[in-house]
Design a protein around this nucleic acid. Structure first.
Length: 878
RNA sequence: GCCCGCUUGGCGGAACCGGCAGACGCAACGGACUUAAAAUCCGUUUCCCUCUGGGAGUGGGGGUUCGAGUCCCCCAGCGGGCACCA
């Protein structure tokens, strides 16, 4: 480029500014232009076409919180790579976007800012849609859905009624966190140190009639099917497995001395019954409550258990405590042995029968308990190689395998045999049954809130719970609601809940609970297949598009959302809406986006934008010059102010730079560290590619030359370049298939470096240059789609890269004909040799022994053995 | 407490099935261009030494192997999950 600079200093700086602008890729103009071109060509519209193979790519849809954050940007960049790559591979790609639009933040905003939740939500959606559009994602916006739209939730209500009819939905008492000041139910995360997050009031545990979905009906299948989810991270499968928590054991009835009723306990170690030294029940067990009625000290103990709670707080204080009820129960095999019955803080009412027997010898928790209360510790299983007569339990319970001892008829049996024998005898005596227990509990979906999908039932004093007739759906949320008072606005609405009973016509009340927003997100992937259908889904559409081939989102949804969606898929299948069992054939969980944290001496967090570098290298607060402590990189969060707004980045560097940076370096499943230097470096690379291709000073052959001219394969440098080009196609293709975006990026860098090396103005060089650039442009297409289009056009094409097929590598150029083989002596590398591909051992040995360094290292000795792995290594063993 | 994962230069990371450790990028340093700066281009960059060469090296210790970042055992640190799950 000519650089003629004349004139005064001021003129010069002005012209330099102009030149600097002209020498740089104008992403703003180009990105807008290509987004319009894609839109005009309709390249991202998905149409059902049974003649073509389909591919459904889905990223977890966002909650419309206000603005997209970097986590969204990373998630959607990855999904878009997959969508564009699969499209280029010839698949009919479905890549939709929508909004998980119900939920508490809208109500909080309504209370704090006096806006309506709907207005707040739709404003946010408009902002975030605009932001997402600037990223240039290959989405089919015609399929956009918002879960707060009645056109969406009416179908959810219909399915609820179907679930009700199928006994998949039911009502029962459930425990809730009740905030007595706000008159509302709190989620677990809203309870901080036992107090309501907003009111600060002491939270009460209350029993309320709640709606539940019977996920436990599918417990077995939800567990078994995990085995077949071979494109899910094994970590997620393991977490779901633990969550479902199947355990095989026995329910055993202990007789209570002087009482007509027995005590039913659940155990997975019925083989250790002879080691029992106490029984314990949950503080919520009916027996405990009855005993407490006549024992104020026990009542106080139970109250204390409730205060500590069963969740995180209990973790801190792992002290096992109990209270002796004074009751005694009889050992099922030894009528003369009486065991004390305790109320213990570590026994959960929700699991099993809410009662256990304690075997201190073989359960650590029971051992701790026994030591504290001076109960006997009887070993009944001894490990192989120990003497049962002397084997004793010290500070640690023995939970391993072994033979039974001190156990009457079980003595000498191993654990499985002993279990079988106990099961046989107890079953025969009708004192116990073999049982499978699950940790998984039914899904409580009732929320005492306004901004959610209304549960379509009516309560009639005469008829009980009456479903809303399907013809009356949807049950719409009223618009005129008041957030000025505590409690559920639906409940205190003057007219909304008063309706006639559909069954008897008398005055009745609507259900004022709305559904958990996890219900909304449990089937949205299916709705995307037919977003305008007048039923929940169109069977022909879902049969074609489902399952989702690749689902991408945060690992924080590893259990709840993904398990609920798996449940919903089965429930919808059983109601005739779907023909599949599993919603997501492939799952990828991406890492978080992190950034350094900055803190002033006052303890105040400071945003990255306000940081400057001091002369000494340290960080200072730009506006005051105050020193700043740079903290370790943490997940971007508003509270620590270490956030970078994607919109700012797109404004400064463009969408392609932002996308490429987020795909570089960090493997997608790991956390990404956002750095200013990194994004600036990416911007330089974008410009480098643009200059190389669009501003090339060397000739690039025309688009119509299909075959390499003579010389392209004879010149060693050009042939090497062509090999690099085709190996890069093969490499990047493999990397994208395997979600190794960072490696794909590295390969593109290598290719760009190799292409920059090609000199010469002859036709052969011009051809290789074109071949390389045309490949490079299509390879970056899924990652930097706008730049790819810009360069594609610069290469003389009138087509869109977005609609171009994926490049195919020439196998002859991928295979290496000469390989570099390392030569080791005694395992130490002494040099390398160039060998023909798949050379024989004899050839390899001759070449290896010819290396002076090898001869020197052998010190005249003769090799004992020469290990030769073709194309890899020669190891001379002395 | 239990379960799972991770640990490679100054930094992010690469290294396929056990076969040349450090690709690629960032940062830093040196040089070219410039009155100067920015941008760009060209180099250097794991550490150590007695430096045309040699040695060590993938959190620490041990093992298997001709050969270990990779496999096995022990330990440490960091991160994640959990309902003390009977």
């Amino acid at each position: 480029m000519a650089r003629v600079i004349t004139g005064t200093r001021d003129d010069r700086s002005l012209s330099m500014a102009r030149e600097a602008a002209s020498a740089r890729y104008n992403f703003k103009e180009a990105e807008a232009r290509w987004q319009a071109a894609w839109e005009a060509a309709g390249v991202f519209h998905a149409r059902r076409d049974p003649t073509r193979p389909k591919y459904y790519v889905l990223e977890m849809f966002p909650y419309p919180s206000g603005r997209i954050h970097m986590g969204h940007a990373r998630n959607y960049s990855m999904g878009d790579v997959v969508a564009r790559y699969k499209r280029a591979q010839g698949f009919n790609v479905l890549h939709p976007m929508g909004w998980d639009a119900f939920g508490m933040p809208a109500e909080n905003a309504a209370m704090e800012q006096k806006t309506h939740p709907a207005a707040w939500t739709y404003d946010n959606i408009a902002t975030m849609r605009r932001q997402l559009r600037t990223m240039g994602l290959s989405l089919d916006w015609a399929r956009e859905i918002a879960t707060c739209d009645a056109a969406y939730y009416r179908h959810e209500q219909l399915m609820f009624l179907e679930f009700l009819a199928a006994d998949l939905a039911y009502r029962k008492d459930g425990w809730v966190n009740w905030d007595p000041v706000d008159q509302t139910v709190l989620a677990n995360e809203q309870v901080i140190d036992g107090k309501g997050w907003r009111s600060g009031a002491e939270v009460e545990k209350r029993q309320l009639q709640q709606w539940f979905l019977r996920i436990t009906r599918y417990a077995d299948d939800l567990l078994d099917a995990l085995q077949r989810l071979d494109r899910w991270p094994s970590k997620v499968c393991l977490m779901q497995e633990n969550w479902i928590g199947r355990s095989e054991g026995m329910r055993v009835r202990f007789e209570i001395v002087g009482a007509s009723e027995g005590l039913e306990i659940f155990t997975t170690r019925h083989d250790t019954l002879f080691g029992a030294s106490f029984c314990a029940v949950s503080p919520d067990h009916p027996l405990a409550e009855r005993a407490a009625a006549g024992d104020p000290a026990l009542a106080a103990f139970i109250a204390r258990c409730h205060a500590t709670g069963t969740s995180e707080a209990a973790l801190e204080k792992a002290e096992k405590e109990g209270y002796d009820t004074g009751l005694r129960c009889r050992h099922p095999f030894r009528a003369d042995v009486l065991l004390p019955v305790y109320v213990a803080n570590f026994v959960l009412m929700e699991y099993g029968t809410g009662a256990i027997f304690g075997c201190p010898g073989h359960d650590q928790r029971d051992l701790d308990f026994a030591r504290k209360y001076g109960l006997p510790v009887i070993p009944v299983v001894h490990p192989a190689g120990t003497d049962p007569a002397t084997f004793a339990i010290g500070a640690e319970a023995y939970v391993g395998d072994g033979r039974h001892c001190n156990s009457d008829f079980l003595d000498g049996l191993d654990v499985p045999d002993a279990k079988a024998e106990v099961a046989r005898r107890l079953t025969a005596a009708e004192r116990g049954v073999v049982e499978v227990n699950w940790r998984l509990r039914d899904w409580g979906i009732s929320r005492q809130r306004y901004w959610g999908c209304p549960i379509p039932v009516i309560h009639c004093d005469n008829c009980g719970v009456v479903p809303v007739p399907k013809s009356d759906l949807p049950v719409l949320l009223p618009d005129d609601v008041d957030f000025g008072a505590p409690g559920n606005p639906l409940d205190r609405h003057p007219t909304w809940k008063h309706v006639a009973c559909p069954s008897c016509g008398r005055p009745a009340r609507r259900e004022t609970d709305t559904m958990d927003t996890f219900v909304d997100s449990s089937w949205y992937f299916a709705r995307f297949c037919s977003p305008a259908a007048d039923r929940p889904v169109d069977r022909a559409d879902v049969d074609y598009w489902l399952p989702v081939d690749q689902y991408i989102g945060g690992v924080e949804h590893a259990v709840l959302h993904l398990l609920y969606a798996r449940f919903f898929t089965r429930a919808m299948r059983d109601c005739g809406h779907l023909g599949i069992d599993e919603p997501f054939a492939g799952l990828f969980t991406q890492g978080m986006v992190c950034h350094e944290t900055y803190r002033a001496a006052t303890g105040e967090w400071v945003t990255p934008a306000e940081i400057a570098r001091a002369d000494g290298g340290g960080a200072i607060w730009a506006k005051t010059g105050a020193p700043i402590t740079v903290g370790r990189s943490e997940k971007m969060s508003k509270s620590k102010k270490n956030v970078i707004d994607p919109e700012d980045i797109i404004e400064t560097y463009g969408a392609d730079t932002a996308r490429w940076f987020m795909l570089s370096d960090s493997p997608p499943e790991r956390d990404l560290e956002w750095t200013e230097a990194g994004i600036a470096g990416t911007w330089r690379f974008v410009n480098r590619l643009w200059r190389m291709v669009a501003q090339s000073e060397l000739p690039i052959a025309g688009a119509d030359i299909a075959h390499p001219p003579a010389g392209a394969d004879d010149d060693p440098a050009l042939r090497a370049a062509r090999q690099k080009i085709h190996r890069t196609i093969a490499g990047v293709t493999g990397d994208l298939e395997a979600f190794h975006f960072n490696r794909a990026v590295a390969r593109v860098h290598e290719l760009a470096n190799a292409l920059a090396e090609i000199g010469g103005t002859d036709p052969a060089a011009a051809f290789v240059r074109r071949e390389g650039f045309a490949v490079l442009v299509r390879l970056i297409g899924p990652m930097m789609p706008h730049l790819a289009e810009e360069l594609w056009r610069a290469l003389g094409h009138a087509t869109l890269v977005a609609a171009e097929p994926w490049p195919v590598a020439d196998p002859a150029l991928v295979v290496e004909d000469v390989v570099t083989v390392a030569v080791q002596v005694g395992g130490k590398t002494r040099g390398t040799i160039a060998l023909a591909r798949d050379a024989s051992q004899a050839e390899a040995e001759v070449a290896a022994m010819a290396l002076p360094a090898v001869v020197a290292a052998m010190q005249g000795k003769s090799p004992r053995r020469v290990v030769y792995v073709p194309n890899r290594i020669v190891n001379v063993v002395l």
